[in-house]
Write a protein that binds this DNA or RNA. Structure first.
Lengths: 184, 184
DNA sequence: TTTATTCGGGAACAATCATTCCCTATTATG
DNA sequence: CATAATAGGGAATGATTGTTCCCGAATAAA
């Protein structure tokens, strides 16, 4: 079932919610219509489950990217670099379910809107925490405003996914090199 | 007709392409079904016209915001501040057609994808030009990498629209204050 | 072995979609 | 004045949508 959900994640990322029909879903998940409706209440429930699964996976990926850094500053650099990578190539073209949901559904779907907000807040808080870690370990100056910088970095990461979906190439080293000035 | 198209822009921004039915469109544009199909070949053509109109309006708004600045640096500050304003409140919740199109359509609609890319490139080039202007007038240091910084600022602006659509509040002064470090 | 029960599959359904067609005013043309 | 042309309105149409219902096979229980 989890592997079927992974396939659902992929379809929703590629096509969005409204452009994904039950037919697309059953084809991707390799289940018949009846089987999908036996596992989920409706299309919306499939999407919610896919969203949940996607955010869990992405969270794990960014945290493990951060963990590869020796101090707060390097951890942030790794997180940003990881975002650039995921915003590019086939993965970037596939898109981010959080960004897609924010843009396509947030305005008219309270359930999705709530999950999008909490996910964005989680990401922002994670970055803010890394900034404070860096200030504690001496790799980031004390005068950096952790919360404001974290919110701007949230905009940067979400923006990368938009730009990446539009197929503009992103040079990780150069882009992140510039972004690190925010920690000066 | 232009006022009808303005109303179409609004609906597409609020609901996206796929979630907007012809019924929604005729109701908003205050035209009957037949009249819409007499003015446009199909729904896709209405969308393309709305996209064109939206980008023209937005371009004008950003340029006039920039024009209020005395030098390159202040012009960029004004552009960023303008983006924050447009990403917030009722306007922010309405969303950006470029971001929406990039996320919802770019992957499967070559015509839209092309227009999104050129629009993003135009925005980026505009910012890069302002950076170079600032370097010429002495308000921005020469060592700032114009192209890389412009691309990062493109990510920032597009990201603001995502975050704004998700209803996270954005403090223009603080956010732009941090972002201006990129021009140090 | 016989009988329940579960599970996946797919046909059937009503609703909604984008699109076409035709009718009726209104304006322009002779 | 008569008539051709145009523009707008809305019903009809066929395709597609999400959802439900029911069937058949496989497994568990008796």
């Amino acid at each position: 079932m989890d592997t079927a959900l992974d396939r659902a994640v992929r379809v929703f990322r590629e096509r969005g919610y409204h452009a994904t029909s039950i037919g697309d879903l059953t084809a991707a998940m390799r289940l018949a219509t009846g089987s999908v409706y036996k596992a989920f209440r409706d299309k919306h429930a499939v999407f919610l489950a896919a969203f949940e699964r996607y955010t869990a996976l992405r969270q794990e990926q960014t945290r493990s990217a951060a963990a590869r850094g020796a101090n707060g500053r390097e951890q942030i650099r790794n997180v940003l670099l990881s975002y650039v990578e995921h915003s590019q190539g086939v993965e970037g073209r596939r898109g981010c379910l959080v960004v897609g949901s924010a843009v396509e559904l947030s305005a008219h779907d309270a359930m999705v809107a709530a999950r999008v907000s909490t996910q964005l807040a989680t990401n922002e808080n994670f970055i803010a925490g890394l900034i404070r870690d860096g200030q504690a370990d001496g790799s980031i100056p004390r005068h950096v405003a952790a919360d404001d910088t974290a919110r701007l970095m949230l905009c940067i990461t979400q923006g990368m996914r938009v730009v990446g979906k539009a197929r503009l190439p992103l040079d990780g080293i150069r882009l992140v090199g510039v972004a690190m000035k925010l920690l000066a």
